[in-house]
Structure formats: structure tokens, C-alpha cells
Design a protein around this nucleic acid. Structure first.
Lengths: 128, 128
DNA sequence: TCCTAAATAAGAATCATTCTTATTTATGGC
DNA sequence: GCCATAAATAAGAATGATTCTTATTTAGGA
């Protein structure tokens, strides 16, 4: 109890770490980032909490890149770019999926659209 | 050699089966569909050929839905809708991602955009 | 027909993710 | 503060999708 870090659950550390990251990390990358401050955290806890966060709507999944799931702590809708060369995932600033797209889908398929995910793929600046 | 089915490689059967499907099937679903005509095909061959098709650009991946990869034999760009309830994936007709989006990304990130993937998620007509 | 290269089947291996269980930690009542 | 109970965690086993390995089969050319 003397240790101030222990005042907070690791759950909070995981969420904070994801929110601070710009890299849209995987569970394992998050686990490694957390090692510095919380060397006694377990990978299973990272996975378990990420799963909970997704269910609670606190984070979103960007889908998998090269077979591993990438996550985002930003909740506002935005477009992503994924480099097929180095695996980096980055935000595309100042662009959004037009509302007309989801409206058209809802109308023609008679479905309810709850979220949109637009991922551009290609080669990033560094890899070019 | 008498058997006409053997005149064609299974590779072709797999590709044809995917192209005929409207369901954006997974590898395992394709495997089951193929059982009727090619009961001696192996699941590993389906996976192996799908991997090759992707590398050759003959098919595209739609990413994973509930942890399993879904594939598409249609190569023209189009938008997809995935039902979080039943896992169905369907085409959204007559809608496209505006070119301005990929142009803006290429410009602001100084990257080369090679493909775009827009997946809407929600609840389909049947599940509503 | 025979030879060589490509394709396949079968099952083992891999890897990300999830589950199980025993332990630790937090919380509320006293 | 101290105990009882519930929640969170660590550790490792289990799972499941996908890939790899190897021996076998098939196709195509000389």
C-alpha cells in the first residue's frame, strides 16, 4: 500500500498506455510498453482487459495486420492507413467516411449500421 | 485420367468456388462447399491456395470477422457490411469510397495508397 | 514411357488469443 | 483497524485458426 503505483489497478495502466500511444499497438506491444512501469503484469491480463474494454466500448479494434489485432484508444471516427511493408498503422488526419455511405447501406440492405472502419493500405513514407 | 474432374487442378476448383460464392466465405466454409465435388480435397490445400491467390492478387481478404478471415473473389472495389450478430458479410451495392479520401491520405502522409477497405458493421435485416 | 517439377494430403507445428485455477488485492461492515 | 467476501490477477494450460513439413501423387515435356 506504500507503493503509489499499487493504488491503481493494472487495468487502468493498460487503458492509459493504449490511450497515450499513437502506434495503434497490438496486445503484445502494449504488454512490452507496460513492462517499464509494471514489470509484474501478465500478458493474459493485458488480453483479458483489452477484451473487456472492447465490450465496454472504451477502445476499438482496427482489425488484424499480419495476423495480429491492432487497437485504438481514440473513439472519434477517423480513417487509418496501414503499411504492408513495416506493419505501421497511422491516423489519416482531416478525412472522414461520408455519412452518405452508411446511409445508403442502411437503406439498400435494410440494416442498422453501428460503426464504419476504413483502412487504406499501401507503403508508408519511411518504406518508400 | 478418365475422371474429368481430375483434368483440372483443385486449385482451379477452389478459385471457382470462391468466385461463385456471394457469402464472402472463410477458408473452412470454402472447404465444406468443395466437399460435394471434391471430397478428397484437404483443408491445408484450401489454405495454401488461398494464400497463393492473395499473393497473386486473384482474390482479396476482407479481414477477420469473429477471429476468422473472410475472402472475396470480386476484385472491383466495393463496400462491405458485416453483421455482428450472425457473422454474415454482404456487398453494399452502388457505393464506393470517394477517391478524395485516398488522395488526401497519400498527400498528408506522403505514402502510396494501394487499396482501400471499408467495412460497415451493425445488425443485418434478418437479425433485426 | 520416363524424368523432373509442381501440387497435394496428412498431420505436426506455430502463434495469437482465451480459459482455468489458485492466489492476491480491493472493498464494505463491524 | 480487522475480517469476510468479491473482484482482479498471474501463470500456465488449452484452444483454434493458420502455416509448415514431408512423403506421395500428378502433370507435362523429352
Amino acid at each position: 500500500m506504500e507503493n503509489s503505483a499499487k493504488q491503481f489497478r493494472k487495468r487502468n495502466a493498460i487503458l492509459a498506455c493504449l490511450r497515450q500511444s499513437e502506434a495503434h499497438p497490438s496486445a503484445e506491444e502494449l504488454y512490452h510498453s507496460l513492462q517499464k512501469e509494471h514489470s509484474d503484469i501478465s500478458l493474459a491480463s493485458v488480453y483479458r482487459n483489452l477484451k473487456l474494454f472492447k465490450e465496454e466500448g472504451l477502445i476499438v479494434s482496427l482489425g488484424t495486420v499480419n495476423g495480429v489485432e491492432r487497437l485504438d484508444g481514440r473513439l472519434d471516427p477517423h480513417v487509418h492507413f496501414a503499411c504492408t511493408c513495416c506493419g505501421a498503422v497511422m491516423d489519416v488526419p482531416d478525412v472522414e467516411v461520408p455519412k452518405s455511405v452508411s446511409c445508403a447501406a442502411a437503406q439498400s440492405l435494410e440494416c442498422r449500421v453501428e460503426s464504419t472502419r476504413l483502412v487504406l493500405t499501401g507503403i508508408c513514407k519511411n518504406c518508400l
